[in-house]
Amino acid sequence: MASSQEEVTLLGVIGSPFACRVKIALKLKGVEYKYVEENLANKSDLLLKSNPVHKKVPVFIHNEKPIAESLVIVEYIDETWKNNPILPSDPYQRALARFWSKFIDDKIVGAAWNAVFTVDEKEREKNVVETYEALQFLENEIKDKKFFGGEEVGLVDIAGVYIAFWVPLIQEIAGLELLSSEKFPKLYKWSQEFVNHPIVKESLPPRDPVFAFFKGRYESLSASR
């Protein structure tokens, strides 16, 4: 365990699903850390110095060594603090967990976002279709398991916080139905289990300000259509 709180720092922003992933991992491990809220319109020197390549949050700093990219950070946390493993010990299962986590980033994060926050209508419709296709793959993958890794929260669930918390939020704003109990009953059930898991619940941002922020963004975009 980290001997003092000062050794572990997380740079994030309140509405970021990627920073939220890291918070869940740290909470699962019981690691104390210092959280620094960044202003992305006026990035701190610490952020620019710690992540000069992407200049984005989250950045995880452990003993003055910075790490960027949420899934990389979650794996690092899992390897550094051995209790409550996030990745399976079996190499094949680990590879699968990495595959599906990357699938969420590659196929769902952008498509679901663009299904709502894109001016061009054709482009929006194309992204809705892509989101449905990707969610269907996850529906088939979760089967009747409680979580993607079985009984405990694992890497794919943590990666999927975007689907469980952010997708319902943005679909409500846009009056879309991306994730519903009718279309994807198993995935929907998983999303409810996941956001109500005590550790996840504690790590999620407060819904109202995040909703208000994205709603404002959506309305200003709608005005320009």
Rank of each mutant, 00 (worst) to 15 (best):
A159I: 04
R124T: 02
Q136G: 14
P168G: 07
L96H: 09
F103I: 09
T118S: 15
E123M: 06
P85E: 01
A111R: 04
L138Y: 12
V119G: 09
Y132K: 04
L96T: 11
K146D: 12
E121C: 00
V161F: 05
P91V: 04
G149N: 05
A95M: 11
I86N: 05
I108G: 07
A134F: 03
I158V: 11
G160W: 08
W166M: 08
F137E: 15
P85D: 03
K102S: 15
L96R: 12
L87V: 04
P91Q: 13
A159G: 10
V128R: 09
L96I: 13
V167W: 00
L138A: 05
V119M: 02
I108Y: 10
E121L: 03
V119Y: 00
K143V: 11
I163R: 07
V161H: 05
V153F: 05
K145P: 09
N140T: 13
L169P: 08
A112P: 14
F117S: 03
L135R: 02
A159T: 01
A112M: 12
L87F: 07
F103A: 14
K145M: 03
W113G: 09
V161Q: 02
V156I: 14
L135P: 07
Y92E: 06
I86K: 07
N114M: 14
F137K: 14
A164W: 05
T118I: 00
K126N: 14
N127C: 08
V153L: 04
K107A: 11
R124A: 10
D106Q: 15
G154R: 04
N127Q: 09
I158N: 11
E139L: 05
V156H: 06
T131Y: 00
K107Q: 15
I142F: 09
K122F: 01
K107M: 13
D157I: 03
K145R: 15
D120K: 10
I86W: 03
G149D: 03
V129H: 02
F117T: 03
E152T: 04
N140Y: 02
V128Q: 07
F117E: 07
A97D: 10
F147L: 05
Y132V: 00
W166R: 06
E133C: 00
L138I: 08
V128H: 01
I108L: 15
W113Y: 15
V109K: 13
Y162R: 03
V116E: 01
Q171E: 15
I170A: 09
G160T: 00
R94H: 13
Y162I: 06
E130I: 00
R98A: 07
R124F: 09
D90Q: 09
Q93H: 13
V128S: 03
Q93N: 13
V109W: 12
I142V: 14
Y92K: 07
A97S: 14
Q93I: 00
K146Y: 10
I86D: 06
L135I: 02
N114Y: 12
K102C: 14
A115E: 11
V128P: 07
